[in-house]
């Protein structure tokens, strides 16, 4: 499923994927219909643009991954790797790709996302690394802050320095699979923490009763 507010991109990406043997089950041009359609068609992978207008791709990602645990979201964004990308990843996206990536890179990323792997660019690794450090440095609620293990930090730094999973495996003398697991685990901890935080916020502000309540 392809979500993008730009028709040219939506059609282009859908065509690229269809040409390479993927089945594009649906497309959507805004966040609200993306969530609605995703719930109906239950795609394996959602390619999500972040700039969708009123409701952002981050909101859509949060809702889709929250309701459809089997569906994975791959963020495809033209903007720089900044706060919105980090927010999307915290909201449950399992990877990120710049829009200018080649068709081959896109195919590989979709395949990896479908297989449950995280798609990490060096830029995203830098953001995630920064986020863990920001949380570690923040003085508030120290108890349940997610932390990286030493190995995870090491792996993430190497990803941020542009090494491929294979190069990292060689350098650290661990298996390729282990590298993937470390990377995924850094994401999962961040997402879990984010959900807990959101739930706590919702309970504190009395927003937890009716998820459909907002008009």
């Amino acid at each position: 499923m392809v979500v993008d507010d730009h028709p040219m991109w939506r059609e282009g990406v859908a065509r690229d994927l269809t040409e390479r043997g993927f089945e594009v089950v649906a497309t959507a041009g805004d966040a609200a219909s993306a969530v609605r359609i995703a719930k109906a068609v239950r795609p394996n992978v959602v390619l999500m643009d972040l700039n969708l207008g009123e409701l952002s791709g981050v909101d859509a990602t949060l809702m889709i991954t929250g309701e459809l645990p089997e569906t994975r979201v791959l963020v495809l964004s033209a903007s720089g790797e900044h706060d919105d990308v980090l927010q999307a990843v915290k909201a449950g996206a399992s990877g990120y790709l710049v829009k200018s990536a080649s068709a081959e890179e896109l195919v590989e990323a979709v395949n990896r996302t479908a297989a449950g792997d995280a798609v990490f660019t060096a830029g995203l690794a830098g953001l995630v690394l920064g986020e863990y450090r920001r949380m570690a440095a923040a003085p508030d609620d120290a108890e349940d802050k997610p932390q990286l293990t030493e190995r995870e930090t090491e792996v993430l730094r190497l990803v941020a320095k542009g090494l491929t999973a294979r190069q990292i495996a060689n350098r650290l003398v661990i298996s390729h699979r282990t590298v993937e697991n470390h990377v995924q685990s850094t994401l999962r901890k961040l997402q879990l923490h984010n959900r807990v935080e959101l739930a706590r916020y919702a309970i504190e502000h009395g927003l937890d009763s009716e998820p459909e309540a907002e008009r």
């Binding site: 507010d5 040219m8 991109w9 282009g12 033209a78 829009k99 200018s100 080649s102 068709a103």
Partner: peptide
């Protein structure tokens, strides 16, 4: 930034992608 993102960047990225293909 928003308007550049919504228009110019999208087109440039698309041009690059198709052109390479």
């Amino acid at each position: 930034a928003r308007s550049i993102h919504d228009s110019v960047l999208q087109v440039l990225a698309r041009v690059r992608k198709r052109g390479l293909e």
